[in-house]
């Protein structure tokens, strides 16, 4: 197990460095500079700016300086949100993204596993077809189409829920973003649960459990679910990555002050420290989570370790 963890770490740490390096390289290779979007600057001022940000130093010096700062988790000061450090912006926007993301994932787990299990137990029934068609619909309808349709219905026709804005966690404003974000994962988890459960329900130990005379509910809850949910566990890693993309859309759509929204804004503004900071933060979080999921999965299913 230790070897497995070490081997995973050997991949994870360079990957984080690669992501940051690629991002830095893309920003630097792109034509122009962060101040070129504004009106033409007098030569003296431009010289001052270049001097202040060290833009005239050799590229490897700039690269090493940036990397050094990032590895010390000091992401610098935003260029466009004046006087705010990138760390402050992340600290402020992370709770919003995390709240929406975690709630959406929980909702997806609860609904997905329930629907998927029912579909598997009643395989080839109307329930099965209906829920799997619905799941395919969830996979096919982009969340930025689903979100506005929900807004149209719940906010602009029924006037139940606010169409956008963020009022903190326990408030009505959470509901629509969470549903919009979770639809896709709900659908995936339902399909994965169904597939996993179908495989398990045909296995020998389920036959044993049945022949012991256990009730069908007991068989499903105590025996089948454990094995049948393994694919769902292993989906957690990819789900985190998708959740991230989804959050960007949902935050733009519902105007939430989250990490994704800041990231898009930073990309449009060419706010280099903020882009690098968010990219570094996101990739470290994502890859660490993936590592944890892999380790957990290694414990759950010994076959995976090798």
């Amino acid at each position: 197990m230790l070897r497995f963890i070490i081997r995973r770490l050997i991949i994870t740490i360079p990957t984080i460095l690669v992501v940051i390096t690629i991002t830095w390289g893309l920003i630097r290779l792109a034509p122009g500079n962060f101040y070129t979007s504004e009106k033409a600057l007098p030569a003296a001022i431009e010289r001052n700016i270049r001097d202040k940000y060290g833009l005239d130093r050799p590229w490897y010096e700039q690269y090493l300086k940036t990397m050094g700062q990032i590895l010390r988790f000091d992401f610098g000061t935003s260029l466009k949100y004046e006087g705010q450090s990138v760390n402050e912006i992340i600290a402020r926007s992370l709770p919003v993204s995390a709240t929406v993301g975690i709630l959406a994932y929980l909702l997806a787990l609860i609904v997905g596993i329930t629907v998927g299990s029912i579909a598997a137990i009643k395989q080839n029934s109307k329930w099965d077809y209906a829920s799997m068609t619905l799941a395919m619909l969830g996979i096919s309808i982009p969340n930025f189409v689903l979100g506005p349709i929900l807004v149209l219905f719940f906010s602009m026709t029924l006037y139940w829920l606010p169409p956008s804005r963020w009022d903190g966690f326990p408030s009505k404003s959470v509901i629509l973003p969470v549903i919009t974000l979770s639809a896709l994962y709900m659908a995936y988890i339902a399909r994965l649960t169904r597939a996993g459960m179908l495989e398990v329900l045909r296995s020998d130990y389920i036959r044993t459990a049945r022949s012991k005379g256990l009730s069908e509910t007991q068989v499903v809850i105590r025996h089948a679910l454990r094995g049948g949910l393994l694919p769902v566990v292993s989906y957690t890693g990819p789900a985190l990555a998708f959740l991230l993309t989804g959050t960007v859309v949902v935050e733009r759509l519902f105007v939430l002050p989250g990490l994704g929204n800041y990231f898009i804004q930073a990309s449009l503004n060419r706010d280099e420290p903020l882009i690098l900071g968010i990219v570094a933060f996101i990739s470290i979080t994502l890859l660490t989570m993936n590592l944890l999921v892999d380790i957990a999965y290694g414990y759950l299913d010994p076959r995976i370790r090798h």
């Binding site: 992501v19 991002t23 893309l26 034509p31 960007v248 990231f263 996101i282 990739s283 994502l286 890859l287």
Partner: peptide, 23 residues
């Protein structure tokens, strides 16, 4: 294949966004 593993775990959508916005 190790290279594929590394690329696989990149949050590529973020890199694409940076690429498309910068260039």
């Amino acid at each position: 294949m190790r290279l594929v593993d590394v690329l696989y775990s990149l949050p590529y959508i973020i890199i694409i966004i940076v690429l498309l916005s910068m260039f």
